[in-house]
Amino acid sequence: MVKHYLEFEKPLVEMEREIENLKRFSRGNPLYFREQLKSLEEKLHRLQKEIFSNLTGWQITQLARHIDRPKASHYVQWMCEGFVELHGDRNYGDDPAILGGMARFNGRPVTIIAHQKGADAKEMAYRNFGMPHPEGYRKALRLMKLAELFKKPVLTMIDTPGAFPGVGAEERGQAEAIARNLRMMVVLRTPIITVVIGEGGSGGALAIGVGDRILMLEHSIYSVISPEGCAAILWKDGEKGKEVAAESLKLTAADLSRLGVIDEIVKEPLGGAHRDAEGMARILKEVVERHLKELEKMDEEELLSLRYEKFRRMGTFIDDGGT
């Protein structure tokens, strides 16, 4: 049973309860209820399919932020072996909002860098809800340089509302830390795979997102500004306009694929990653392995020039000529 559910998940949860009750009730006489149970389960499957094939931008935003949605640490645990967490930026401190370290992915060592939102209230507070300070981005950069030095591929996972807006963060150079990561990632001499696993919040997300491959889980989002923030600016009311903004911003995996920003949408189990977290990790592991194999075949020069071209091409405009 799920712990938390969203408004549009309610009919599903109710039907699941019904099934659960029927199962309990029928324990003494399973044959008698078998037909009824079967039809209910089919109905549930149909309903789930129906709801999840017509999600609005705002509903996907809610799924991307779902409290039960698997966090980066879940994928590290289920996709990798022998994770050793590494801490600190060697400069100011350690930022728990960024999880980093070395692990084995299908046998080979990789460097992991990810936003970690936290799975429960306590961890969320400790992780600052996955909103990094500059030291988080500098830790990320330090680990990327480590990966480059020892020729290990980098796997980053994006899941953040954005970089933390605070006095200390500004004083210690939030903008500089993000900017430097962008510049360094473009020329990092090792393969980088980026997966948006939940919420991709603006520059704070991009700061670990300049990869050779950018993948997005089906119900994750990636946007220049949150729907609430966009609505607050355009309609002076973040609450009322957020649903319109979530559509306008084109922030879903399908949108980003259409806009040519991402390389692949990773299918989620029916009902979303939180319904089958282990299944999600299995699916993602396969996809990452496939991309990693492709990247490992390239030599450094090819890798870097393709990465440059990838970002060089981003954007749309009309060129009416002239120098």
Partner: peptide, 23 residues
């Protein structure tokens, strides 16, 4: 900052210009 009306493509201009600056 970013141009909201161009959404994610605006965000990607940060990466694009930083890439050129890396060169």
């Amino acid at each position: 900052g970013a141009r909201m009306q161009e959404g994610i493509l605006s965000l990607m201009q940060m990466a694009k210009t930083s890439a050129a600056l890396a060169k």
